[in-house]
Design a protein around this nucleic acid. Structure first.
Lengths: 187, 187
DNA sequence: CATATCATGTAAGAGGTTACATGATTAC
DNA sequence: GTAATCATGTAACCTCTTACATGATATG
């Protein structure tokens, strides 16, 4: 285990209090805890599987939010199990905080796609280099589409299907875009 | 004008040095400066117009990155004009830093769409409420698609067209998704 | 002369990433 | 026994957002 936190630079805590609305990442963790207690590790894995396509979460964040939510009384640590597994369970306050979060109007999406920046400034790049970059990203999207379509074959609950479907529709659109762009910027 | 920065808490400076590669936001600003000197304000407006669809930038960031890039010698302030307009021009070092940035492999995209989180946890919401939220977002996407299509009618250089085209393809895909989701989660 | 817009920025901190440290247990 | 993976976390830092402060100039 790492060093004890120094008093001076102890990791800036995530800002979770009763007064402020939850951030979406913390809320998601609470969401997953509705299915029963989970450890930080479990949550990382679950989040990656279930919302990783459109909401990336790192292990650092998970442990930080869990600690903050424990301080705020939204989750409760259970008994430490084998391999230091430390399960967290939802409290009533946590359930209430989640309910409040999910009632709120979801904010606007925000896409950050560095490749599009590169394309936007494409005139500063030899055409071949740009085509190369596009090709690299195209195969990544093809692969993802294939993964999603495979996942869609084994059915799931309607909510998971809906988000998976978003991924499929999105990836198809991006691939269509690659076709068009390779025509217009290629030769 | 605001208070002078205190020595203790002076705004954390953006970390731009010759040693590290530029961040994408700073690089974009340099990209726009290839068309001639611009003030912070100009850059905010230009960025919003040209890359705002897939790379949001705030005024705070612009002024901070400009200050950092000036310290690093990547841009040079010109004479202050009317209304305190302070134009910045690209230096040779800035041109070189941009060239280096755009040669790099662009990173993966990252989409964060809170609505999808809400859908993923939709079972915790009365169906009508979820439908309401979907409807709100649908009209936002319809509006954006219309804007993009209007913009596409007045042609532009191929690189701008390509990124605009991404927006169009994306918005159409999202609308298609709304159709499907309203079917599967609606009744 | 009042309001809108142009224009500059600071302060504070939330949220996210990267890199690291540590050790237990399972599978080969 | 050694490598992979499970599992917990800290430290450091960057990036981005929100809220605010300040004033000049154009427009009605």
């Amino acid at each position: 285990m790492a060093d004890r936190p120094s008093e001076v630079t102890a990791g800036r805590a995530s800002n979770i209090t009763a007064a402020r609305p939850l951030n979406a990442t913390a809320a998601s963790l609470l969401g997953f805890l509705h299915d029963g207690p989970k450890t930080g590790w479990d949550l990382v894995v679950t989040a990656q599987e279930r919302i990783g396509k459109f909401w990336s979460i790192t292990t650092s964040q998970v442990y930080r939010e869990l600690a903050a939510m424990e301080r705020a009384g939204l989750v409760e640590a259970g008994e430490v199990g084998p391999r230091d597994r430390k399960p967290f369970a939802l409290t009533d306050a946590g359930r209430a905080a989640f309910a409040e979060w999910i009632e709120r109007e979801p904010g606007p999406e925000n896409i950050r796609y560095p490749l599009l920046l590169t394309v936007a400034f494409g005139r500063h790049l030899p055409p071949g280099r740009l085509a190369e970059m596009l090709a690299v990203h195209r195969v990544a999207h093809e692969r993802r589409l294939a993964d999603y379509e495979r996942a869609a074959e084994c059915g799931a609950d309607p909510y998971s299907s809906a988000t998976l479907d978003f991924g499929i529709v999105y990836e198809r659109a991006v691939l269509e875009w690659f076709d068009r762009v390779e025509d217009s910027l290629g030769p």
